[in-house]
Write a protein that binds this DNA or RNA. Structure first.
Lengths: 333, 333
DNA sequence: TTGTACGCGTTATCAG
DNA sequence: CTGATAACGCGTACAA
């Protein structure tokens, strides 16, 4: 079943069939009806590959993320998929894992599939060492690249993110204002975004005249059990801490597990603040105070920027939204 | 940059370039080296659309799911994406929501994009009324359809699932054997799979001579708060229950929230068993006993079946795995 | 308003 | 081992 079959059956040329399919107005109602009738009768659908070849696009956007099962990234993907589809774009999904080389491979793979644009989801795409981000700039020579919760300068690269520095700065400040100064900071990746968060924590301490203590900051990967055990061993060294801020809700849940295991009561003995305001924050107990980085808003911004680029409208290179501290049961304020 | 440019630059015909690209053996090493050199120099990548047009495939599989941000579905998608990519297939992701008409629309959309196969993820695709599943059988006339955790008979439809009936049967039995007979059952969708789960619960009661009580079974949608409130109002009616089995971990977390709010101690006052063994089960407190339906195994089976269909090998129509009760802190056994 | 003819970039076939 | 050429199915100038 192709456009020739339809044109024969309807007694018109393929050009007319094409016009009808693509909503071209220069077709008489009578002809249009006839063609549509044949199309419906035959259940004809234009061949997407041929169309893609001619138009040099299949209206597809690539979404790259380290791990689509991470609740926060999963939510991002969900929003993006919905919004892209509303705009008539399909989603090609790629889960890269956390290795730089794989991210690079998959980005090139998407380019070779001729996607119209790529969205890099999550802060983990941007490395602190700028040279390692060069592959993204290279890709941006071919299609627009959108960073969701990441920031990178470069032509044809657009960023939408939350002010991570300010967010942890404010959260840290909030604790200090409430008389809590022994604050642990836990993070789980060395991305640029996580560096910002850490900087916010450090700056807040400095601004309040509280000395920064290296042993209060830990880089941690692994499951909840690992987090718990790390905190237990930390407290066994005699370290005394009254609060924990984490770069991720998952770590914060680990902190809750630690508190339970030591019979510490939350928040009177230990305050905990997570990051992302993901489902983790609601299903744990006590429910987690968490920094909300306005995921839906950011996703919406990404898509509107991308659509703007496609239609050659002027769009902002970088959009930064403020975070919001969502207070639940792991803090007393 | 197309195959003609390369062929000119290398001083060979486009046929030879094509042969080199596609690893055809009938090319002399010398020619091959020359062509490869030019390809690398120019950074040439074959046009995927043209290739698709010629081969009538772009090696793409559609994944349809109601909501990619649901932890259980997100995990499924993650596994599937990984495994498909290992086999050289891309993933076109579609989030349909829970409306039948939308599922239908999106399935047709995927077909029009000429995917090589479609995987329907999650039990929610199969309706109890068989007529409502007809659109899937129709789609299967064009490409193989794989049901992940669903079951439907039909040509070119393949199913991999977990024995939901047996799973809740065994879980219910387990509670009864431990002297708990007042067991609530909560479910959140009317899918075929959820019907199986409910049947398992009912059958276990019957086999143990415990009368089935309609008021012990609730259909519930909504967030954790809703679940909690429903249970509170249920207990206010004087209903006395000692255990809750749910069709989904999310509902079970709601049940935990309920127990907390009523100062019931878990599991001595109330036992809770969830379903899916998702991240919900680990991050709540107490950690949730949950029925694990072997997601990774099922995903692996789906992909191997699909690849089998693609290569025209004989494959099973239906594969059923047993579930496993993962015991944590919400049950005493 | 409609039809003809060509281009899009591959891969496959067949001839040499 | 290599080259010429015909599909693949559609969109679209351009002609009528």
């Amino acid at each position: 079943m192709n456009i020739y079959d339809i044109s024969k059956q309807a007694g018109v040329s393929i050009a007319t069939v094409s016009r009808v399919i693509n909503g071209n107005t220069n077709v008489s109602q009578k002809t249009k009806d006839k063609v549509l009738a044949v199309i419906n009768e035959c259940g004809y659908t234009p061949n997407a590959f041929a169309r893609g070849l001619g138009l040099n696009t299949m209206n597809t956007v690539g979404i790259l993320c380290p791990d689509s099962s991470d609740p926060y990234l999963a939510k991002s993907i969900y929003y993006l998929e919905q919004m892209l589809r509303q705009n008539g774009y399909d989603v090609l999904l790629c889960c890269t894992g956390y290795e730089l080389s794989e991210k690079q491979n998959y980005l090139n793979l998407l380019l070779s599939k001729r996607v119209d644009g790529v969205i890099l989801v999550g802060p983990n795409f941007i490395e602190v060492q700028d040279a390692k981000n060069e592959y993204i700039r290279l890709a941006a020579k071919k299609v627009p690249i959108i960073l969701l919760n990441g920031t990178l300068s470069g032509e044809n690269i657009y960023c939408a993110l939350c002010d991570d520095f300010q967010a942890t700065y404010d959260a840290t400040n909030c604790l200090i204002k409430n008389g809590i100064t022994d604050i642990l900071y836990l993070y789980n990746s060395n991305s640029y975004s996580n560096k910002q968060k850490l900087d916010g924590y450090v700056a807040a301490l400095a601004d309040q005249g509280i000395p920064y203590r290296k042993e209060f900051v830990s880089y941690l990967t692994g499951d909840l059990q690992c987090v718990k055990e790390h905190l237990i061993s930390l407290s066994r060294t005699g370290l005394d801490f009254k609060a924990i801020i984490t770069s991720d809700d998952h770590l914060a849940v680990g902190a809750i597990k630690y508190a339970k295991s030591q019979n510490l009561s939350i928040p009177s003995d230990l305050s905990i603040i997570g990051y992302n305001n993901s489902i983790y924050a609601e299903c744990c107990d006590p429910e987690l105070t968490s920094i909300d980085n306005r995921l839906e808003t950011i996703c919406k911004n990404c898509i509107s920027t991308l659509m703007g680029v496609f239609s050659k409208e002027p769009v902002p290179l970088k959009t930064i939204f403020p975070a919001e501290l969502v207070k639940r049961e792991t803090t007393s304020f």
